[in-house]
Nucleic acid binder design. Structure first.
Lengths: 233, 233
DNA sequence: CGGAGAGTTGACTGTGTTCAAGCACCGTGG
DNA sequence: CCACGGTGCTTGAACACAGTCAACTCTCCG
């Protein structure tokens, strides 16, 4: 079974920080370190945040996968995004003290925590950090709106293909996974709730994608066999 | 016919600025004024931006409605949002020089323009402006993700009702419209492309909403008859 | 060996789509 | 004043994509 990576003792040694917008360069790391509250691990399935509840800490995912989702009273669920190591969890807490979505661990996870208000002040006080936060947020909006096009105007076949392509590219960008594929701990029900479909239909679509020689998703592993065809979708 | 409001000659007199995040308070207005390039009007249907094309000015909608949309090669369209007076057009241009969507005038519109780079610098240089921009952007993400839940997991009936409720509330917040309703220059095809449906089905849903005594949308006018029931959706 | 969770398969249903025709509204021009 | 054409809305019938339900298999673990 997969073993969880060990958290570094200090931010300076953290492998995630180069490139993380909230770090703001080496000269800020000690400041950031002083805001750090500690770290935590959780098991698969645990809720890291629940929609609407008050929360005063924000987390940075260090290892494992999580999902960001909204639940309707009658049990329907919409997954908003998949979260990978390095992603901040609950970023809207910088602007409000209640989150408009829940966050749930998809695998065992570890993350480190910062005090909401102090972290917000840290960013708000520095023009270039605030600007970079805005930049990140713009990217998040763009991603949400692309998913909107998927769900609103693309077929199930296109949706599944594009989501798996996106995941594979995000994993590659972080050097997770190898040549042909990667571990993707996502079940058909997750794809379904992410794409506005049912798990059963996702299963049928995955079979078609496999039969068409485009990709396979089985036993927690995603393999892409025809990247060109996949990009065409 | 509706008459277009007259643009003020100077930002100081602009009725939109109180409350606009990019203004940043009275002391900044002269600075903002100096960045202003001028104003423009366009007829209904004209494209203000086209997806992917380079653009070096950003606009603030002064009067009229516009839509933000993405078009697929085969003609399918997804409307991302409706833009009302006071809304910035093409905000992502602050972070990139190509827009990931098109903007089209829905009615005759007027707007004023600012040079992209100068406007971005104006904001990026001031921590509190940048932070407010981040705040706005977070709201945009939240809106996109709520629409995502609508399209992904709600029925056509719920979707149409909720979108019209949202529009009516945005109009009310800007003092457009009166007691019972407001002018809403949105055709069934727009609702359809916004909600991942077809215009024909939207028509059927609107009839059901009317038959159920909840609302009517006809001849460019939206009237809400049972706000409570509408909120229940 | 047994049980739980995930995935598969098949038959049936339903929400929403497609296509086509007809109608209402409205600004234009004879 | 009315004929005209365009645009948008409505209706009906047939269809399709995706959903629902239920039974069965597979795999992984204990």
């Amino acid at each position: 079974m997969s073993v969880m990576r060990k958290l570094p003792s200090a931010c300076v040694n953290c492998e995630l920080l180069p490139g993380a917008f909230y770090a703001g360069g080496p000269e800020n790391l000690s400041r950031l370190q002083s805001l750090r509250l500690g770290s935590k691990t959780m098991r698969a399935g645990q809720f890291i945040y629940r929609e609407g509840e008050q929360a005063s800490t924000i987390h940075i995912l260090f290892d494992g996968w999580a999902i960001r989702q909204k639940l309707l009273p009658d049990g329907r669920r919409q997954i908003l995004s998949f979260l990978l190591p390095g992603d901040p969890l609950g970023l809207p807490l910088l602007h409000a003290d209640r989150l408009p979505f829940s966050v749930q661990a998809l695998t065992p996870v570890s993350f480190c925590s910062f005090e909401r208000a102090a972290f917000a002040a840290h960013i708000a006080a520095q023009p270039q950090l605030a600007w970079q936060a805005d930049h990140m947020c713009a990217a998040a909006t763009r991603a949400a709106e692309e998913r909107l096009v998927d769900i609103g105007r693309r077929t199930a076949y296109e949706r599944v293909g594009r989501l798996l392509l996106e995941l594979s590219e995000r994993l590659k960008a972080r050097n997770l996974g190898d040549e042909r594929g990667a571990q993707v701990p996502v079940r058909q029900a997750h794809l379904a709730d992410s794409l506005g479909l049912t798990a059963i239909h996702v299963g049928r679509v995955l079979r078609r994608l496999r039969d068409d020689g485009i990709l396979t998703l089985a036993k927690g592993r995603l393999e892409i066999h025809n990247l060109e065809a996949l990009r065409q979708l």
